[in-house]
Design a binder for these strands. Structure first.
Lengths: 169, 169
DNA sequence: TTCCTATAGTTCTAAAATTGAACTGTCAAT
DNA sequence: ATTGACAGTTCAATTTTAGAACTATAGGAA
């Protein structure tokens, strides 16, 4: 598996990481969700080098996550806004923020609180099953190969049962 | 903002990215959730260089996402298993996989299907509000500074209202 | 007019991260 | 005595990223 060919892997996680897995990309997208739209805005908010910022924006546009839209002629200027594909990254963002809220806060508490406009309350995001609505946990989920699975037999980690030697204390 | 000091930022997303944002780390964690536990298992599943794999595993252990547990004496061998902190990354994983399932599939369809053992059905993960249970979307959420917010006034992207010039066509 | 500023990049060199390949060491099995 | 499995480590070559300077257009100020 090569980093530059992640998008060709038969794995939705690898493919997604091919899009958002580069250094700084998720932080750029955070800014997008906080309504930053312009080059200088991203640059000053993140302190990323201009070179890399230009690269990343170009890639995100190519991948259909952002759209580059002119907001001014003479001199020509553009701003970057999330497409629907980009907006759909929201659950990923929220999941990341929530994990940080739970596991990475210092004594002062959370940097940001989230208010759900529909119900007016401060909330946490919860991931649930689309079918029964119950919260998901790793051990309640079983994976099956889907139609787009890698065709042949796997040397995959699931089947491997390494032989045991002397047991540890 | 420096990549090596992300964990000190007053931002839960930045802090989390400091933990899982390195190249290959999320793919290593994918393997963990698929029950890979050993060095060779990760290496052969991912094709990552042994050098980097060793680095990443060390960092994840340091950060409390994995625990390194001996499973054999003579020669001493260890395996890497998810801590609770690591298991709590599950919603992030699922959100990433789901986005790929929606936006990155080829004509053949999804590589993997997920079955919810509790209800027996194939499902998609849905992110909902902990307070009202409704699905979340970016525009229904408003952010407020929390107790751990950066103390002073922000040069943040939210307040900046750049002056407009000649409008684009 | 000339200078300064704002915006959105591009270009260049140095530093850091990643890759690829080979090498180390322990023990079991042949 | 040799081979294979496992879990790394080491080192040179390549890629990425960081840091700083530079380009270009245009508005407004002096």
């Amino acid at each position: 598996m090569k980093w530059d060919e992640l998008e060709d892997e038969p794995c939705s996680m690898a493919r997604t990481i091919g899009v958002i897995g580069d250094r700084w990309t998720l932080l750029i997208l955070r800014e997008c969700f906080l309504r930053t739209r312009r080059f200088e805005g991203f640059q000053s908010a993140l302190g990323i080098t201009r070179h890399l910022l230009a690269e990343r924006l170009k890639k995100l546009v190519r991948q259909g996550v952002l759209r580059r839209i002119p907001y001014q002629e003479a001199p020509k200027r553009h701003e970057y806004i999330l497409t629907q594909k980009g907006l759909d990254l929201y659950p990923i963002m929220m999941a990341i923020v929530h994990w940080g809220d739970v596991h990475m806060v210092d004594t002062r508490g959370r940097p940001l609180l989230h208010e759900h406009r529909s119900c007016g309350k401060m909330f946490d995001p919860v991931m649930v099953c689309s079918e029964c609505g119950e919260p998901l946990s790793a051990k309640d989920v079983h994976v099956h190969p889907g139609p787009g699975a890698r065709p042949s037999a796997e040397k995959g980690s699931l089947e491997k049962k390494p032989k045991v030697r002397k047991r540890a204390a």
